[in-house]
Nucleic acid binder design. Structure first.
Lengths: 296, 296
DNA sequence: TAAATCAATCGAAAATTTCGATTATAAAAT
DNA sequence: ATTTTATAATCGAAATTTTCGATTGATTTA
């Protein structure tokens, strides 16, 4: 068993396609096949079922996948600790985030990169569920999302700010001066909404469902900026967290009434892993940048 | 970085002598030198200081040693999980124990080996302190010793039985019928005592010190059986846990009076690691065998 | 001063990893 | 029903890595 073989195995197990995995790893399929077999021999256990030139994981393979990831992560962690020890302020940080926190994230990484130009940054957007899985698989170092601080024992969750689910309208809209608005009312407006993959949309759907309010979506978009641009035309309105309209000066956010219309923006980091300096430094900047939102 | 290199490094770091380490690893010194250098290159960090053909760990090396052990352990853990998954009842178990629990341990491993003949057993005797270090370094799977159940957050500690610190005399000794004896009295007898490396001796020294009783040791031996054999001649007495004289039918254990003369025999297992079946099975047998002692 | 110890180095041998081409099998497309 | 496509295994050769044995040079010990 060697780390190289574990890395090969993980990729093969993830793609369940040796040819693609080999390409991904910059080796030939032949080599991958060979090394997987070698790993299986050393473990005395088949990791893949070979059903007629297709592969799928055996039960042992499923288990091994997790342990292989853990072992590889452990090895990489030691490399990172040495970097930190040398106070290198280098290496790589992989940040997972939901779209809803894109604005804050962008501001933060700009400052982060200015301060620590040698740290490589990778950002992966995804739903909260996606990100939770990725954090368990050691694919991301931390995740920014709107989530409860409870119910995740293996995560260290820090609150960034609270955000109101809000109706977003143009300043010349007749409702623009309202201090709050009832959920029942907004469905009457022409609404452009984020698509189902956004947690904010799930929240909205749930709130409407609880009150039995029907919703006829006329416009559904997979991009926050597009929604804001539409709202900026004053022909549509949208529903987002109030913190999302940052640089659209002509838009107004009107908080929705009712319980459960407030969500906590958080950063979550796995408790079990070593908290590398690059990660701690990022969190510091993120918390500082969040202050602006906290006082709104 | 490969597991092979990490294994080489750990041994080299432990022995701080490349020649010996190489011998230990069944490779040549040349190979070891080369592979260590390769590892250092891949980490971009020197792990050893080379002061004129001698080696010692750099700060980074010290840190790396821990992480290397952890990584290797993680890899081995995955192998063990697969064995367990196949219900193999095989593999290897390394048991650390203090001498004071040798008797119980022997009885247990006899039954253990009868039931699971395919599991390889290795036993390492050492002081409680030694064993604690070894358990942290992943060198033993569990440890049997007399220790407090508290103050070790990272360990899962199970109580086996309580043992009294006792004066051990021959049945024909004039004190043989006593139900208990005061600490002050025993120093008058010709005593053969376990050496300082035994926790029981530390306990005794501490109790005497607390009461300001001076002790003039006439005989100090590094082996429990030898002490018992001496006591069996009726020319000497000794002080041990009452459970230690098991198959010496002509010896009597007389409990010492006072507080803190009772110690808990325990089995401790690291919380962080995977509890492999071989280990769980061993613990079961051990607990069963302990019953005899519990009712004394 | 001589002998012993020890890590680095070097070139060659051995082992392993990787590659490219081919084969075999099943699924998909025609 | 037949052909095409996709895929993993296999095989021999090439490339690379690992290991070895011998030597060197520097230091400590006798």
């Amino acid at each position: 068993m060697e780390l190289r073989q574990l890395k090969y195995f993980v990729r093969a197990a993830e793609l369940l396609n040796f040819t693609q995995a080999a390409e991904d790893l910059f080796i030939t399929q032949s080599t991958l096949s060979h090394q997987i077999k070698e790993l299986e021999n050393s473990l005395d256990t088949l990791l893949f079922d070979r059903i007629a030139k297709r592969v799928r994981l055996t039960e042992a393979g499923e288990v091994m996948l997790q342990y292989a990831r853990k072992t590889i992560h452990q090895a990489e962690e030691s490399r990172q600790v040495l970097l930190d020890l040398n106070n290198m302020k280098s290496g790589k940080i992989i940040i997972g985030s939901t779209y809803g926190l894109q604005e804050l994230l962008m501001e933060s990484i700009v400052e982060y990169n200015e301060k620590y130009p040698d740290i490589e940054i990778q950002i992966i957007y995804g739903s909260t569920t996606d990100l939770l899985q990725k954090i368990l698989d050691y694919k991301i170092d931390c995740m920014l999302s709107f989530m409860s601080e409870l119910g995740h024992n293996e995560l260290m969750i820090n609150k960034l700010f609270s955000a109101h689910l809000s109706l977003i309208v143009h300043q010349s809209h007749s409702w623009a001066k309202l201090k709050k608005v009832a959920l029942e009312k907004v469905t009457a407006l022409p609404l452009a909404l984020p698509s189902q993959s956004y947690s904010i949309r799930n929240l909205l759907d749930k709130l409407l469902d609880d009150k039995g309010i029907p919703l006829h979506t006329k416009m559904e978009i997979n991009d926050i900026h597009s929604l804001l641009q539409l709202a900026n035309t004053n022909k549509w309105s949208t529903i987002l967290m109030h913190t999302s309209l940052f640089d659209f000066k002509e838009l107004k956010a009107i908080p929705l009434e009712g319980k459960n219309t407030v969500r906590e923006a958080t950063i979550a980091i796995s408790k079990g892993i070593y908290h590398k300096k690059s990660l701690v430094l990022f969190q510091e900047i993120l918390l500082k940048k969040s202050e602006v939102y906290r006082n709104e």
